[in-house]
Nucleic acid binder design. Structure first.
Lengths: 135, 135
DNA sequence: TTACATTTAGTATAAATTCTCATAAGGGAA
DNA sequence: TTCCCTTATGAGAATTTATACTAAATGTAA
């Protein structure tokens, strides 16, 4: 299963990479449009799916939110800001976690796990402090 | 902020409790309608939000899926079946996890974490075996 | 070329959830 | 009680995110 690198595919991949951010499809669409104005949102969705399928990017299904895509497909955990919804990469936070053992207790066969640390990012902390001090 | 226990609120809470399952809003709506046929779906959504806000139920935002609500509001992790999307409770799987420390590295202030173990539930394993042997 | 498969743009549709708003219900205070 | 006020409800519209569909465009291979 060779992956054909179409023009739009290439630009989508490049824009995600250069962003160095965890973008949602519509955010990436906005960026890609600047380079290729006639691209369709559906194309962005389609190719993000294909690229993550091919292991070239990561797909981030943060709880209860829009999907985001990760320029870095390697295995790692994430931290999520509840204020601005930004996501950052994290060194694996689960050292010593034995997901398989936990699954076995309830009869599941375990294929993976998903761990998000939840908090407030540095920027939003600063903004909030400013707001507080204005009162 | 006292929580007024309206009739619909009470029935929603009771039906979730007696289900002993992690229901999505529309599933719970179906159950509640049998007791109170004229209830509105919006009322179910509204009150699930209010009840989880009040800490009387848990809100489960499983990645990339419909929200589910947990009759058990106490702190615990979850395991999720990729085949039937069912969710089960799990004893805390993160013993020794220091979410705060991980957050600190990237400057976040950490308020929590979310851990889902992902796998295939016993029922879906059995179904799959049957399907395999039929071939 | 011709012939076939894949991809795309643009639009329609779907699913889950939230919003709006008129009406109804419930709880004091007189 | 009766009146008033706040809050909740039902019904449907609107929103958000994502996928499906279709005809046109493009690529590929003989």
């Amino acid at each position: 299963m060779q992956l054909r690198m179409t023009n739009q595919r290439e630009i989508i991949l490049r824009e995600l990479n250069t962003s160095q951010r965890h973008l949602a499809a519509d955010e990436l669409y906005d960026r890609v449009k600047k380079v290729m104005p006639r691209i369709s949102l559906a194309t962005v969705y389609r190719n993000l799916e294909i690229l993550s399928e091919a292991g070239m990017i990561g797909k981030l299904e943060i709880s209860g939110r829009q999907k985001r895509f990760d320029y870095d497909p390697s295995e790692h955990d994430h931290i999520y800001c509840v204020v601005c919804h930004r996501v950052d990469n994290l060194e694996m936070a689960h050292k010593g976690l034995t997901a398989e053992e936990f699954g076995a207790v309830v009869g599941y066969s375990v294929t993976g796990y998903r761990l998000e640390i939840i908090g407030v990012c540095p920027e939003c902390q600063t903004k909030n402090e400013n707001k507080e001090s204005k009162k």
